[in-house]
Simulated assay, not measured.
Amino acid sequence: MPFHRLVVTPADVSGRGLRLALNACVPSPLAACSLPHPADGTLVLGVLGASHVVTVKHSEHTFSEEVSCTARTDAELPGRAEAPGYRIESRTEACGEAEFRRLAQMLRVSCEREGGWLGGAFPGDDAALTALAAEPDGPGWRWRTWHLYPDRAAGGTVVYTRSRWRP
């Protein structure tokens, strides 16, 4: 799936303010890709302003996950949360400059070469990016995301999420 160089100012400039919204009104992504499930339905990966949205359309169900600073919810991004058929785990990590740049490069390459990946880079720093990767998981899906926030002083912060949804 493609890697997009977005010409917008990122709306989310820090991982500290990320919130989780489930099944809320889905914002229009800056970049998106649709993945068909071999059994039923479609998953859409979307890059927002340095954050993400994932939507699932299944014959009997619809589902959405938004992780962003502008999500219309008071729910902070949890370390772990569950809902019927759904689970998310997240963690935040500070990285040194070399490690942060290597991760950004690896994610760009994966988005450009691998199926099931989507990424978007933001102006100002080549490592300011969001990447998503998804694959079918039984009758549902599982996906991972990386939100990279450079710190001009040293390296940057990475917010990782890992989610699973089943009908």
Score class of each variant (00 low, 15 high):
118 L>E: 04
118 L>K: 05
41 G>C: 12
35 L>T: 14
104 A>P: 02
116 G>H: 12
132 L>W: 15
140 G>W: 01
48 L>F: 11
108 R>L: 00
34 S>A: 11
92 T>G: 02
101 R>W: 03
123 P>R: 11
56 V>N: 00
137 D>I: 14
72 R>T: 10
56 V>G: 00
104 A>H: 00
98 A>E: 06
81 A>K: 12
28 S>Y: 15
116 G>W: 02
80 R>S: 01
39 A>I: 13
43 L>A: 05
68 S>P: 07
48 L>M: 15
83 A>P: 01
98 A>C: 03
83 A>F: 00
107 L>S: 02
32 A>S: 15
47 V>F: 11
46 G>I: 01
104 A>Q: 04
130 T>D: 03
105 Q>N: 04
106 M>W: 01
136 P>V: 08
63 F>K: 07
62 T>Q: 10
101 R>A: 08
28 S>C: 06
111 C>K: 00
138 G>A: 06
46 G>H: 08
128 A>Y: 03
120 G>W: 11
90 S>T: 04
54 V>I: 14
20 L>D: 10
73 T>H: 02
26 V>Q: 15
133 A>D: 05
91 R>G: 05
53 V>D: 00
32 A>W: 10
118 L>T: 04
77 L>P: 07
70 T>D: 12
112 E>R: 09
142 R>N: 11
106 M>Q: 11
110 S>Y: 10
91 R>V: 01
134 A>C: 09
63 F>W: 13
46 G>R: 09
85 G>Q: 01
100 F>L: 05
56 V>H: 07
132 L>H: 06
152 R>F: 12
67 V>N: 10
73 T>R: 06
80 R>N: 11
130 T>I: 07
37 H>S: 07
103 L>H: 01
119 G>P: 08
116 G>Y: 08
56 V>L: 15
38 P>K: 12
153 A>F: 13
123 P>W: 13
28 S>I: 15
93 E>L: 15
78 P>C: 09
55 T>P: 10
91 R>D: 05
78 P>A: 03
59 S>G: 14
66 E>V: 09
47 V>G: 05
44 V>R: 13
48 L>V: 13
148 L>C: 11
142 R>E: 07
117 W>L: 05
120 G>V: 06
147 H>V: 06
57 K>P: 00
36 P>A: 14
61 H>I: 09
115 G>E: 07
49 G>D: 13
35 L>R: 05
123 P>L: 10
45 L>G: 02
79 G>L: 15
19 R>V: 07
45 L>N: 03
26 V>H: 08
44 V>P: 05
58 H>E: 01
106 M>S: 06
115 G>A: 10
88 I>N: 04
24 A>S: 15
54 V>W: 05
90 S>N: 07
88 I>W: 03
44 V>G: 09
67 V>A: 10
57 K>C: 04
91 R>H: 08
20 L>Y: 13
68 S>K: 03
72 R>S: 11
60 E>M: 11
100 F>P: 00
32 A>P: 05
64 S>K: 12
124 G>T: 12
130 T>N: 02
130 T>V: 09
